[in-house]
Simulated scan of single mutants.
Amino acid sequence: MDETHRDRDTEGRARNARPRDGLGRPLPYGAPGVERQPEGVVRTPEETVREAQRLLDAGMPFHAHEVFEDAWKSGPAAERELWRGLAQLAVGLTHAARGNATGGARLLRRGAAALAEFAGLRPYGIGVDDLTIWAQELAGRVAAGQTTAGGTVDAAAEAPCLRPPAP
């Protein structure tokens, strides 16, 4: 493809049309990739949590991040930190799965910090306290190099449970 060419959407905004793998990395044009999440979808909180959990369980945290990002951008202001924090956790897991220990640990911690105002609460059944513990523990392991020989984590095996059983 011509290097000066930029993929554009119907409004003329730059949009990369290259296929992506399960961790959101661009693949060569024409290569098989995973189906991308459509952008700008307005979902109910229930739909958001259900779709994000499905993607996390499938080892696709980058795609789960896009679902959370839609909720963050379209939801009420009082919930933006919740969805933003969850998006950061998903991106942190993405970076850790790609082998970026510094970025992974940083974003996992940043996401946990964003969820702080929801500590002790279970908005939409989301176990914020459990997620914060998960993120801090994973960030510590990633930062300490306690990962696979290739420096990555298995995104599906490390996927958090967004809605653990109520205590």
Rank of each mutant, 00 (worst) to 15 (best):
A114W: 03
A58V: 04
T148Q: 12
A143P: 00
L86Q: 10
I133S: 15
A113M: 09
T4W: 11
A105E: 06
M1V: 12
P76L: 05
A77T: 04
D129C: 06
E69G: 07
A101S: 14
A119K: 14
A114F: 02
E51V: 09
A116M: 04
T148R: 07
R80D: 09
L56Q: 08
A17S: 15
G30N: 15
Q37C: 08
Q146A: 09
A105L: 03
A14Q: 12
G111R: 10
R54S: 07
Q88G: 01
Q88Y: 01
M60L: 13
P160I: 02
P19H: 08
R106F: 07
H65V: 02
R106W: 08
D9W: 10
A31Q: 05
E11S: 00
R15N: 15
R20S: 11
G24M: 03
L23R: 06
E69N: 03
A101V: 07
R84F: 09
V49P: 15
T94H: 00
Q37T: 13
D154T: 06
H95Q: 14
D21G: 15
A31N: 10
T48K: 12
R122D: 03
R84H: 09
Q53K: 10
P45D: 09
G150V: 00
E11G: 02
E39D: 12
E11Q: 09
R80Y: 08
E51P: 04
W134Q: 06
T147A: 15
N100P: 05
L23M: 08
G151M: 00
L82C: 07
R84N: 04
P26K: 03
G151T: 04
T94I: 04
L162Y: 04
D57A: 11
K73D: 11
G103W: 00
A135T: 10
R106S: 06
L56S: 12
R106E: 13
P61M: 03
T102L: 03
N100L: 06
Q53F: 08
T94W: 05
G140H: 02
L121I: 00
D21C: 11
P160M: 01
T94A: 10
R122H: 11
A64N: 00
N16I: 09
V49F: 04
E117I: 14
A90Q: 05
E79S: 03
A17M: 10
V67G: 01
R141Y: 00
A64P: 01
E46H: 12
E46Q: 14
G85K: 02
